[in-house]
Amino acid sequence: MLSITRRIVCVVMLASLSVAAFAAASAEAEEITLYSGRGESLVDPLIRRFESESGIRVRVRYAGTAELAVLLAEEGERTPADLFWGQDAGALGSLAAAGLLAELPTQLVDGIPDIYVSTTAQWVATSGRARVLAYSPERVSAEEQPASVFDLTKPRYRSRVGWAPTNGSFQAFVTAMRVAYGEELTLQWLRDMRANDTQVYRNNTALVEAIAAGEIDFTITNNYYLLRFLANDPDYPVEQRFFEDRDIGNLVNVASVGVLRSSNRFDAAVRFVEFLLSPEAQRYFTDTVNEYPVIAEVPPNAALESFQRLLLASPRIDLDSLEDLQGTLELLRQSGAL
């Protein structure tokens, strides 16, 4: 037993030393805590920039957006977090509805398009991602392209479409449809999609892969997944496009950030939000992450439609109204999709 125990103890001591060192290093400068549903490899370069520019240290807890939203709800006023940065508006909306977010200073959100700010100014988008139609260029001809997301229930698309009912951005889209067209029509659409043998997948990545694999010909997904596949493999056999302008299928969802009301480092937290909205950070989102900027003064990314085109194509939906996810889940359950 001894030798093995000794080895394990060594590892543990090493690890706890590094933890202690890490805790000690964080004791000095002003420091804020960020709960991030956005991934480390995207966020970390930004955090470093911010730290060196502002002298404020940022401690980051990386996890799933949903897990963090549930965690913040459970922590309530006791949370150690100053900021929450999530993958979708719904997560921020649920916290705003629970009264956990602080109002952001008005000069911060001035000049940002309405589709990117909560009406109560409790959160602001850091980047936009459009819902798009992804399809197989080999198996889909030009005249076969649906004009609207409502067309996908037609017989010619039977068994050829995939969706991901458990996915957050899909659910936000369904919420938007409820807001725009009412419960009845949305439920009908969901039922018709089910009746049209729409294939169920785990998430957006799986959907795009399923088109490449030849299992489905169409899917409704977020715009950046395909771009990340294409970055690794320019021959990837999938393409994407918008539905016709203003179609609800072109909904622009957002990754967004908010400051916790219980934070006693409000100013430092706001500085971080400010940084995320700066041209420098916005350029990073556009160029490296393939998402849409929230401010106009960023050079466009060739892989994306222009910022102006996006504003034209996207439906007019108040993102704050997307907070009623419980209602959406109920509808999804009624239709049998969940």
Binding site: A69, V70, T166
Partner: peptide
């Protein structure tokens, strides 16, 4: 599935 969609979809405990 049902549990996951309740936590992750509705942030509901």
């Amino acid at each position: 599935y049902a549990i996951y969609s309740q936590y992750a979809g509705a942030f509901d405990r």
